[in-house]
């Protein structure tokens, strides 16, 4: 049959839905919903200032170059430091958020940060520093370790990839080191 103007899947009546679903239709009127209209100027915010006071910038704080200034309030967790910090600072100072390079450099900074912090922890915590925190050790100790192919796992299709994702930075680092060492030896 050709498609017609009628709904092919008419809904049950409002009475039936009200009976079956607690609160059905309580917000039926679109004009009486908290997010309508999207922009409105009558939302009470609790603010009692026109311009917020500025938070003190105790050390140089990176910012997006799409901002005209450092925002009056900003997070102070984990300030930039070390090689990862240098990569991140370059990403912020050189590229806007519109550029893929901005985000890809930040991702590179994340991987460098992760690798260096793992290596730094090895002297004090041993090789476990490189794998600790995944939840696996606790599960192994508790005897509740579940098989990677446990049919109840939601991530079965790609769980095999996770060790590769974790190992990739180490493998890449080992490969680069090997290439550098080999290059130096050959030059001699």
């Amino acid at each position: 049959m050709p498609y017609t103007a009628d709904r092919p899947d008419p809904a049950p009546s409002a009475e039936e839905l009200r009976r079956r679903i607690p609160g059905w239709g309580a917000d039926l009127d679109p004009a009486d919903r908290p997010s309508y209209p999207k922009e409105r100027d009558d939302v009470v915010t609790g603010a009692h200032w026109v311009l917020p006071e500025r938070q003190q910038e105790r050390e140089p704080r990176e910012r997006s170059i799409e901002h005209g200034m450092l925002t009056p309030v900003f997070g102070t967790a984990q300030p930039l430091h070390g090689p990862a910090g240098a990569i991140r600072r370059y990403a912020y100072e050189r590229y806007s958020e519109a550029r893929a390079a901005h985000w890809l450099l930040l991702m590179l900074g994340d991987r460098v940060d992760s690798a260096l912090s793992g290596l730094q922890a090895v002297p004090s915590r041993g090789p476990a520093a490189l794998v600790g925190g995944t939840g696996l050790i606790k599960q192994l100790r508790s005897g509740r370790m579940l098989q990677p192919r446990d049919p109840r796992r939601a991530d079965n299709a790609h769980v095999w990839m996770d060790p590769l994702v974790l190992a990739a930075p180490w493998l890449a680092g080992a490969w680069i080191t090997w290439r550098v060492v080999r290059g130096v030896r050959r030059r001699r």
């Binding site: 999207k38 915010t45 912020y92």
Partner: peptide, 13 residues
């Protein structure tokens, strides 16, 4: 304008 999750004064990054 009620877009409280889109505040422009709190995310420098």
């Amino acid at each position: 304008r009620g877009l409280l999750s889109n505040c422009h004064n709190v995310n420098a990054n």
